[in-house]
């Protein structure tokens, strides 16, 4: 009996320590006053937090990553919402093929996609690296967008669209007046999931860098190989709090986890 009452807290403590402990150490290390990354931190200072904002390459790659995460996710939704609508509301011949094609980018490892784009689009077409990164991140997020939007469409009765049509609305009008307002939560959830996925993505962007064009996580990995100071820890903490904050707010206001 004692074994069973102890089981739950001990297991939870060990598992949560393993999962979250390293993150707490990173947070602690980012307040270090020392010159090298260490734990326990040597003294307390905010210098590394401030330093993050002064590193030029971080500022540039942060802007790139933001642009890709916001733009790529928005583009994925623009493509994904109509596709989800077709898949959930129409009898579409070859629906399974469309579904498989659209969700394919989730199955194939990102590094392969990145290399393929480098070899067959960037090099032969002399395409702009930012454009290719944008396309790649759009493709990466599309499966998530389709999955989440489809789930919220499945939860919405389709007869309200017919009701709107019989009250005089066009089919397109019915979509904007009746469907869209009711799947807004799902779309926002898809946006957040897509944003986090795109922002944290490394392998896809690995080969897709050009002078001055690099995503933030790739930039961080490159920085870590050269400099061993706590600034990457500080940046990691900042980013982690940013994502946790966004997801927490989303859960609070939208019930995010219903859709994911």
């Amino acid at each position: 009996m004692i074994a069973r009452t102890l089981f739950i807290p001990v297991v939870l403590l060990l598992v949560l320590t393993f999962l979250i402990g390293p993150f707490l150490i990173i947070v602690a290390a980012s307040f270090s006053a020392g010159e090298t990354l260490a734990f326990p931190p040597q003294g307390f200072s905010l210098q590394w937090i401030f330093k993050v904002f002064t590193v030029d390459s971080f500022r540039a790659s942060f802007a790139t990553s933001m642009l890709l995460a916001v733009g790529g996710t928005a583009a994925a939704l623009l493509l994904g919402i109509p596709a989800s609508y077709a898949l959930s509301r129409y009898t579409l011949p070859g629906a399974e093929i469309v579904r498989t094609v659209v969700s394919a980018p989730i199955i194939v490892p990102g590094i392969i996609v990145g290399l393929a784009l480098l070899r067959y689009i960037v090099v032969p077409m002399q395409a702009s690296m930012t454009l290719i990164l944008f396309l790649a991140h759009t493709a990466l997020v599309l499966p998530y967008a389709v999955r989440v939007v489809s789930a919220s469409l499945e939860n919405l009765r389709s007869d309200i669209e017919e009701a709107a049509v019989l009250l005089g609305s066009s089919r397109l009008g019915a979509f904007f007046r009746v469907v869209l307002p009711n799947i807004r939560g799902g779309i926002l959830s898809a946006f957040i999931l897509g944003f986090v996925t795109s922002f944290n993505q490394v392998p896809l962007s690995l080969f897709l860098s050009a002078p001055g064009v690099r995503t933030l996580p790739v930039d961080m990995m490159a920085y870590m190989e050269i400099v061993f100071d706590p600034s990457v820890a500080a940046l990691s903490s900042l980013l982690a709090f940013l994502s946790i904050g966004i997801v927490f707010a989303a859960e609070r206001f939208l019930g995010f986890s219903r859709y994911v």
Partner: peptide, 17 residues
């Protein structure tokens, strides 16, 4: 929660440990 944190940050922590 760890799923929301950048894998780079999560992996980086193990260097410290």
């Amino acid at each position: 929660m760890p799923l929301m944190i950048s894998p780079v940050a999560r992996t980086y922590a193990w260097i410290v440990i």
